[in-house]
Computed example of a mutant assay.
Amino acid sequence: MIDTQFCGLAEIRAISYFSSSLYLKESIEEVLWDITKNVIHQLGFVDCIIYTYDVDRELLTQRAAYGVKNPIGEKIYNQINIALGEGIVGSVALTGNAKIIRDTSKDPRYIKDDEYRLSEICVPIVINGTLFGIIDSEHPEMGFFTEKHLYLLTIIAALCGQKIKELGVNNKKNFSKANQYFKKLEELMRFKKLYRNPCLSLSSVAEVLGISACYLSSMVNSLLNKSYIDFINEYRIADVKRNLNSKAFAHYTIISVGLEAGFNSKSAFYSAFKKHTGITPKEYRDRCAYVS
């Protein structure tokens, strides 16, 4: 329950928006970017970074951003990692206790990222008692962040953690090879030969399917246990193998066959072919000629 006496109308709207929008989110990336791009903006902050925690490396990695760090789309400018215990972010990750730093110039832990700012607030995202990440926001004005902001970000972090927990439990169950989008995806590859487009991107295919890029990536990964680019390249390599063994392409150079299949460069072609077959395209063609 939101304390309406503690929060203003703008803050209540921001929390209500986030609570409602979570139902439509299908991946962790969508949840995190929704916080930075929409919720944080509504709160009137000028900057926000969400870090996620890599347990094996004990590193916090910038995963979503708002402000100078996010000049366009879902890109993070000069993406950095912070070690557990390092800086204010790392300290909050280590202790699990949210912090408001009213004057960063007096805190030796402060780490400059894109520019110096005089106040900072850090709130951990915890799932089942385990650190998932950190919501970190800075402001050029000293003493900008208040207990009200801490209260709001704590609610946002809790909602975020709950949704990510649900995604982790349900993600595999949500997909099957009977999924209408997966069936349409396979049709586009098998019959429309969409993979032959050298400029084909995750977002462009998602747009054709009418779904988000995050949903498409999660679907391919969950159903096939492989990345989107590996999925596309397998179709391209199958095309290359057929054509290298075809008289109709006997006058083509090997690189021309690769480009015809949708690879956009010689290096990308040779690297993918070796990764998926264990041999080079020339070795494959020579073996086919020997067998013939």
Results as ranks from 00 to 15, higher is better:
E29S: 15
L94G: 07
V208G: 01
D114A: 14
N264Q: 07
N179Y: 01
N171H: 12
I50N: 00
D34L: 00
C214M: 09
S218G: 08
T280S: 15
E186W: 00
N38E: 11
E186I: 08
K241Y: 07
C160K: 04
Y116R: 11
P108E: 04
I80F: 03
S119D: 05
L188N: 03
E234R: 07
E30N: 09
R236T: 03
V169Y: 14
S212A: 08
V89K: 02
T280Q: 08
P71A: 11
S218W: 05
I237V: 13
N128Q: 12
F144D: 02
E283M: 14
R287C: 12
T253A: 10
Y23H: 07
V55Q: 15
S20K: 13
A83N: 12
L152A: 04
D286A: 13
R287H: 13
N171W: 06
F144I: 03
T95V: 06
A238M: 10
V55K: 15
S137E: 06
F144C: 02
I76A: 05
S218R: 06
E30K: 06
S20V: 09
N174I: 09
K148C: 05
G73N: 10
G67H: 01
N245Q: 11
Y195P: 00
Y51D: 02
Y215G: 00
I237N: 01
K266G: 11
Q79K: 13
R285A: 14
R190A: 10
Y215H: 09
R287A: 14
K69E: 13
L153G: 03
L59N: 06
F18M: 03
L59M: 12
E166Q: 14
T154A: 14
I232C: 00
M1T: 13
H276K: 09
S217E: 11
S204D: 11
C199H: 14
S119A: 09
N170E: 12
E120M: 10
Q79S: 14
A213P: 06
G8E: 08
I80D: 01
V220P: 02
L43C: 04
V126A: 10
R57E: 15
A64R: 01
K25I: 00
I134D: 00
P140N: 09
E138G: 08
K184H: 05
A178V: 05
L216I: 00
S292G: 15
L209R: 00
I254R: 03
I80K: 12
N81E: 13
K192Y: 07
A250Y: 12
C122I: 04
S246T: 05
I82P: 00
E166W: 05
E120P: 04
R102V: 06
V240M: 12
G87P: 03
K247A: 11
I135L: 11
